[in-house]
């Protein structure tokens, strides 16, 4: 088991910045009044924003001494998000990593990791699941 990551405070401008970067044109990502009119406390983050918090757990994984993972050989194979609710500006999120599996496949390693992201009350927000492919020596 890994330590939960320090709390990540989701900022309004960070949501606007990330939303622009993924080509969002959705008012819920940019306009506080629109988000409030839709029943949210503040701006809503795009569906893949959880990767920003999950990244902190992947950094833990890559830093594990016995993992022996060479970052330059890591390729993103699969990604999944399972949501309890959307991320909203003002959320204080903590991610906890559990490595689900390591499989060997034709000289490559497939590392599937699961990060459970919870809010300040401990309630589940989203689980991010990544499969990283570590290419073996050519």
């Amino acid at each position: 088991m890994y330590e939960p990551t320090p709390p990540y405070l989701v900022g309004r401008e960070k949501i606007r910045e990330f939303s622009a970067a993924v080509f969002s044109v959705n008012p819920l990502n940019f306009d506080v009044q629109a988000a409030r009119a839709a029943g949210y406390d503040d701006l809503v983050a795009p569906p893949t924003f959880g990767v920003v918090v999950q990244e902190r757990t992947l950094a833990q994984l890559l830093a594990t001494p016995d993992a022996d993972l060479d970052f330059s050989r890591v390729v993103h194979g699969e990604q999944r998000f399972s949501y309890s609710r959307p991320i909203v500006a003002g959320d204080e999120l903590t991610a906890t990593l559990t490595v689900a599996s390591v499989k060997q496949l034709g000289g490559h390693s497939m590392v599937t990791s699961e990060s459970s992201i919870t809010d300040a009350t401990g309630a589940h927000v989203v689980t991010a699941i990544s499969t990283l492919v570590v290419r073996g020596d050519e």
Binding site: V22, F23, S24, V25, N26, L28, A38, V44, P46, P47, T48, V75, H76, G77, E78, Q79, R80, F81, S82, Y83, R85, P86, I129
Partner: peptide, 21 residues
């Protein structure tokens, strides 16, 4: 996923999103 997000209207209605690269 952005076009789907726009079509759905309320992001709370999205339960799961996965892809293979």
């Amino acid at each position: 996923v952005q076009p789907v997000f726009d079509w759905v209207g309320d992001p709370a209605l999205v339960d799961d999103y996965q892809v293979r690269f």
